[in-house]
Design a binder for these strands. Sequence first.
DNA 1: CCTCGGCATGCAAGCGCTTGCAGTCGAGGC
DNA 2: GCCTCGACTGCAAGCGCTTGCATGCCGAGG
Lengths: 348, 348
Amino acid sequence: MATGSGQDSPTINDVARRADVSVATVSRALRGLPNVAPSTRARVVEAAATLEYVIDPTASRLAGGRSHTVGLVVPMLGQWFHSQIFTGVEGVVGAAGYDVLPFTMSGPGGVARFIDSPPFRKRVDGLVVADAPLGNEQFEVVMAAGVTTVTLGVLVDGVAGLAVDNTAAARLAVGHLTGLGHTRIALIGGVDDDPFRFSVPVDRFRGYQEALKAAELTYDPELAVPGNFSLDGGAEAMHRLLALSDPPTAVFACSDEMAIGAMQVARDAGVRVPEEMSIIGIDDHDVSEYVGLTTIRQDVVGQGERAATLLLEQLGPDAPAPTHEIHPIRLVVRRTTGAPAPHTGKRG
Amino acid sequence: MATGSGQDSPTINDVARRADVSVATVSRALRGLPNVAPSTRARVVEAAATLEYVIDPTASRLAGGRSHTVGLVVPMLGQWFHSQIFTGVEGVVGAAGYDVLPFTMSGPGGVARFIDSPPFRKRVDGLVVADAPLGNEQFEVVMAAGVTTVTLGVLVDGVAGLAVDNTAAARLAVGHLTGLGHTRIALIGGVDDDPFRFSVPVDRFRGYQEALKAAELTYDPELAVPGNFSLDGGAEAMHRLLALSDPPTAVFACSDEMAIGAMQVARDAGVRVPEEMSIIGIDDHDVSEYVGLTTIRQDVVGQGERAATLLLEQLGPDAPAPTHEIHPIRLVVRRTTGAPAPHTGKRG
DNA sequence: CCTCGGCATGCAAGCGCTTGCAGTCGAGGC
DNA sequence: GCCTCGACTGCAAGCGCTTGCATGCCGAGG
C-alpha cells in the first residue's frame, strides 16, 4: 500500500539469511569494518549483490545517528553563483557518499524564518553555509543547532570557512578604472536596507572607497546605488545613474549579473560601452566571456569543492581546528572597460 | 560524541511526559490527525513549543514508511535551465513540507551509473525527472525502482509529465526566420552522439525541418551542427558555420545559451548581428533580455512548479490518472533577428 | 439501571539498521 | 592437559517515531 514503493526490496535480514550470517555481520561486512573474516565478507558482498540489496539510509541513520547528508544553505539556488557552488559541493561530498540537501532562504519569511526554525535541524551531519546574508548574531543561532558548519563567502569567528578578499577585489576593480583615468566612478552594490549587515557588499563598498582614496578621488554618495545582485537590479541602478546631472564615466558592479543588466541599459540609452561608459563586474559569470565583460574572476565551483572538502574534514575522526581560507581573485580585462572619453560632457 | 549534534534535543517522549499523555497521542496531535480532543491537542502543542521539540524526520520516516522527500533528477544543476526548475519545484513541495533532494547525472559514469544503481532508491517518495536524457528503455529502469514519478521536458507513456511542444517551438523559431526572408538557416542542436535518443533535440530538429519544408527550402545537412546546449558548444558551432563556403544568414539555436555563445563568435568574427546574421534561441534565459536575444519563451520556473504540483497529486490519497500536459511557448522578438542582407537590393 | 456505540487515549509491536557485549573456537603458553 | 588470548561472530537492545488494536469513558437508547 505504501505510495511510491514497488515490491518489497530486500532488507539486511534477507542478506544475512542468504549469506548465512547474522545481520550484525552483514552490517559490518558491507561497511568495511574490521574484524570480519575475508571469506565471510566475500560471501556477504555476493549475497547483497545477487539480491540487489540497497541499504536503507533511513534505518541506518536512525540507528547510527548520522545522516550522511550535508546541507547547503544558499539564498536561492536559481542564481548562477549559488548553482555553481552546489555543483562544487555536490561533486565532492557525493563522491564521499553523502547526499546534499539544499536549503534556500527565499520565499515568505526568508531569512527570518530561517533563523526562527532552522529547517536543517535533525537532517544533516554538516552544513555549508554559502553566501548567506547572516550577521554574526544570526550565525550564533544557526550554530546553536549544533551542526558542524563551514562557511563560504563569509568568514565567521570560530567557524571554518573560506572566502575571497572582497575588499581587495573591489580595490582591484576600481583601481583598474582609476588606472584608466576615470574620475567619476559609480558603485552598484548590495541591498542598502540589509538588516543583517551582510558583509560581502559592505566589504566591497569599503574597497571601492579605498580605491577612490588611493587615487585621490572623493567619494560621492550619489554614485553609490543598490543593485540587489540581480540583472534587474543592475538595470535599475544604471537608470538611476544615467539620470544624474553629472553621470559617471565608469561603473563598478558588485556582481557580473548586475553589470550585465547595467550594461544593457546604458547601451539602450545610446551610451556606448566602453567608449562612453566603462563597466566592470565581479564573479566571471559564464556569460561574461560572451558579452565581453571585464570582471574580477573567482573560481566559484572550486570554492564549493573546497568548502565541501573542509566540511568533510570537520566531520571526520580527527577534525582539524577550524581555519579560514582566502581564495584568489584575478582581474580579467575584456571589452567593457577603457579610458574615459577625452572630453567629459554630453553623450551623443 | 556524535559529530554534528549538540545537546540532546527533546524527543517525542519528553513532549508526552510534559503534556501528560502518551507518545501516540503526541504523534497524532502534532500531525493534526482526527480523534484528538481539542484540549489535549492544545496541551501537546504547547508542550512541544516550550520544549522546542522538532520531530526527527528519520525516525518518522522509518516508522511511517514515507520520507517526505522528493527527488529532482536533472542533468546538472549548474545549468540555468535546471536551477530554475529546482526553484519552481522547491517552492511548491517545500510549502507542502517536503524536502527536495537533487540528483545530477554529471560526473563519472553519468547517465549509465544513474541507470545501474539509481541513487534515489530508498530515499524519496516521489521524483521529478527533468530534462533527463533518457530514452524510454532507460526510463523503464528508473520506474522499476517503483517511485512515483513526474517528468518535465520529456513525455513518457504511462508517466505523468509536462513539456512544451518542442517541434512546434522549433517551427515557430525557424518560421520567424523564413518569414523574414532567410533561405540559408542553420541549426545548432543537441549532442549528435546521444546514445539515448533524448527526444528534446530530436523534436526540435524535426520542427526545424518541417519549417524549412513549409517555406519550400531544402534541408542542407551541412547547416545542422551540434552545440551541446552550452555556451561553449554554441560558440564552437558558430565557428564551424562561419567556416563554411556558403555560411548561413540565420541561425536557430536550440537553447539561449548556445545562441549567446554563437552570437559572440559571430560578432568577434566581424559578422554583424542581426544585419548579417540573425540568431534566435529557445528558453528566454535570464540574460537573453539583456543581450537582446530573440527567442522562444517558455516559463521554466512555472513548469517546475507545475511538475511539483502534479507529483504532489500523485503522492496524495486519491491520485488522478497520470496525464500529459503541454505548456505554452511564445515568440519574443528582440534585436538579434532581422531580414537577411540585401543581396538583391531589398533594404539598406 | 444496563447495554451499546463512539470517541479519545494508551499499549506495544514494529520500521531496518548499528553496536556494546558476550560467546565460540583454535592456537600458543605454562 | 588446562588456561589465556585474540579473532570472529552472534545476541539483543535500542534509535524515535507510527499505527493497529485494546481499553476506558460517556451519553443515549432499551
